[in-house]
Every structure is written in C-alpha cells, then in structure tokens.
Design a protein around this nucleic acid. Structure first.
Lengths: 220, 220
DNA sequence: GTCTATAGTGAGATAGAC
DNA sequence: GTCTATCTCACTATAGAC
C-alpha cells in the first residue's frame, strides 16, 4: 500500500484488480502495464509472460487466505467453534480485498483458458488449493465422526461453504442489488457471518444437544 | 438436438457451450463459426455482433430456467414444500445441460466485459434475472412472515441458495475432485438435492414445529 | 530496469460476389 | 444465406538502445 513498493509488487497489485474484474482472457498486458505506470514490454522484465503473471497473482491471494485459515484449524477448541472461526476467517479474508472473491471464482473457470499456456507456477496454486480443501474436509470429518455434526456428506458441505462465502462476495451487482448495500460494507460482512453461522448451527450441528443460543442477536 | 435445426439455432448451441467453457472474452467468433460449420463472416448474417450473440445465449438459458421455476411458485402447497420443489427444479434445470451453471456464473462477472459493447438484448436478460430473484424472494418472505421459516434475512438466503446450487454445478474440476465423480451423474445430482434439502430443513425451518423426517433416507 | 520499435498473429467487423 | 477478401485494431512477445 505504500508508494515505495517495487515495480514488481505494483504490477501484481494492478494485475490482481484487473484479472478480478475482467478475467484472464479479458485483460491485456498493455492495460496492466499502463495501470502500473509502465509500458507494455517492461512487464517482461519481471514476468515471463501473461500466464506466469496470472499464476503469481492467484498464488498470492491463495497464500493470504491459507495463512488466515491454518491457525484456526490448529487452535485447540471444540469442532463446532473451530468451524465458526474457520468461516469467519474465510469471510474476513474475502472481505479484506474487494477483488479476492472474484479472482478466486474466476480462477475456477479460467483454468481452461490458462492451462493452455501452462507455467510451472500453476502447481503452487493447485497445492495451496488442495491444502485449504484438505483442512476444511478434515475439520468436517472430525465433526461428523465425533457426532458434533449431522451425518452430512463432507464434500457436499465443503461445496456449500464455498458457495455461501466465495460466491456471495463475488456476486457483484447482483448481490448488492439484493442486499441494497455494498457487499463489503461492515454491516453486510457482519450480517453474512451471522446468517451463515445460524444456518450452520441449525443445519449442521446435531439437533439433540444442549444449545445455548442468545436468541436473535441484534437483527434489523 | 435434431440435425435439421436452423443455422441460427446451431450457432446458439455451439456458442453456449463455448461461452460456458471459455467465457465471453475467451471465445472468438472464428471458433464459434467453425464449430457451427460456417465461416466467421456468416455469423454476422444471423447476429449483429459478438455482444448480441452472447446476450441471446444468456437470455435463452435464463428463460429455460424461469420456465421451470415459475410453475413451482404458482403451485398451491405450503411454503416449505414450495421451497423444496423450487430448489429441486433449479437443480434439475442446472443439471439438464452441463453448460448452464457455468454460463450463468460467468455471466455474473462478465457484465463488465460485455456491457462495454452494450446491446438492447441485454435488457431482456436483466428482466429475466429480476423475475427469478423476485419469485424466490417472495417465497422466502412468505415463509418468514407465516412463521414457516426462521427470521432469516431474505436476500442473504437467496445468495446462499444461488451459491449452493449454481456455484456447485459450475465448480468443474474442483467439485468433481471433491465428490470423486462427475457433478452431473445421476447419483451426484440426487445427493445434492438431498444434502441441500436437509440443510434447509434443519437450518431454515423453525425448530419448534412438528417435523416428520424419515430418518436417514438412504445414505451411502 | 525502462524505453522504442517491430514482428507475427488473431481479433471483430464490413463489402460485395454468387 | 454463405462465401472470399479485406480493413483496422489489439494482442503476446522479442530485440536492442539507453
């Protein structure tokens, strides 16, 4: 965020914003260069080409997310609280930069477009995704095995969690039209956590256990 | 599906598949033309340009979906069953063509790319989206007002439903890696409906009402 | 490390013959 | 309604001066 960042970081920052907004195929290196205050060919001094730049952008945001999620999984509380914290941490990560969710969701699709001109850096991206998925799957399995959660399908529940978080914050104008406010406003983020937690606690958590919910915590 | 379809329909079909796979910016009209058995310039006899072709593709799948959802909303059962049927109908619509979910989710993002070269046909797309969203919002509001559902936020719940359905079937390799089978296999579609219904019934439906669930309906 | 210049390709779109 | 030919523009990438 400071003005004394290297050209390389500046390029990554503007490329992240552009790829999130217009996608891999929709962004030209000319755009990226000019937004970074350079001329197009100067990019090739920092990155081998478009595909590598994209892979580095994607890898950077995935690592950012993983760094927020891993500590939650290692914390020593009960499974139910760990899931709450995991979801909150993911939402915080997505809400930190307005481009993150879109970049991730687009990344899911554009693998086709960009695996064509494949680069070795793409492997690091896949590994980080696998690690994140592995973490949440272990957590859910632990909950199901110990009876803290219903006997849900772990993969399907992972998909639901991704949809409820990444899709939501990537939904742009459609989501903002529904909510009537910016998706990343403090109120909307807070409310998203609350709604999702309530859904999970009534939907995931076994029904025949003592449950101390502070009824209707500050609804509008 | 027959071989005696008009060139126009053939173009729409192959464009739908290509736009779903590679996105608006990622598809060239040359690809579309050759996949339809024509040369590029022949497309311009049927469509004014790339943006209009894309708008018509998008409009067609949205109308297909709306035609499946509207009858559910007009059926005369209780709110809870209507929601179940609405979700099932949406999943059936998404599972009917393997391209639908991706096309829709990409459509959310690519509005930027393609609103640039704006076409009047885009309005019909917006209207169909608005009608679909209005329908599910009314249904959810009815459920909250009558006490059939918890006091959830209607817009947030719409977002969760979209994420749990459209995202899921658009998730491609990531989703298939998680589930270990094709997303559109009969078993995976059946299971998705079941998992989502269970989540909603334990999460959306009020907890202090008589609930006759046929315990563990055929889990693997 | 950034620049100018340029190669080489493919894009969307138009004109007009058949 | 489909074709060939062509226009203009933007793209990724490279070469080489400074």
């Amino acid at each position: 965020m400071t003005e004394s960042q290297s050209s390389r970081d500046k390029i990554l920052d503007v490329a992240e914003a552009l790829f999130a907004q217009r996608g891999y195929a929709g962004v030209g290196l000319r755009q990226v260069a000019e937004a970074a205050g350079l001329v197009k060919s100067s990019l090739f001094h920092h990155f081998r080409g478009k595909a590598q730049l994209y892979a580095e952008v994607l890898g950077r945001v995935l690592v950012r997310i993983r760094e927020r999620l891993d500590p939650v999984l290692e914390s020593g509380t009960d499974t139910e609280r760990k899931l709450d914290r995991w979801v909150d941490a993911l939402i915080d990560a997505l809400a930190e930069h307005p481009t993150t969710a879109r970049l991730l969701l687009r990344g899911l699709f554009e693998e086709d477009d960009f695996r064509a001109d494949s680069v070795p850096e793409a492997e690091a991206v896949e590994e980080t995704i696998a690690a994140i998925l592995d973490g949440i799957q272990r957590l859910l399995k632990e909950g199901v095995d110990t009876g803290a959660f219903r006997e849900v399908s772990v993969p399907h529940t992972v998909q639901t969690l991704i949809g409820a978080t990444v899709y939501h914050f990537a939904s742009g104008e459609l989501g903002e039209g529904l909510l009537g406010r910016p998706l990343l406003s403090a109120e909307a983020v807070r409310r998203r956590k609350l709604e999702l937690r309530d859904l999970l606690h009534h939907g995931l958590v076994g029904a025949n256990r003592p449950r101390a919910r502070s009824a209707l915590e500050g609804r509008s």
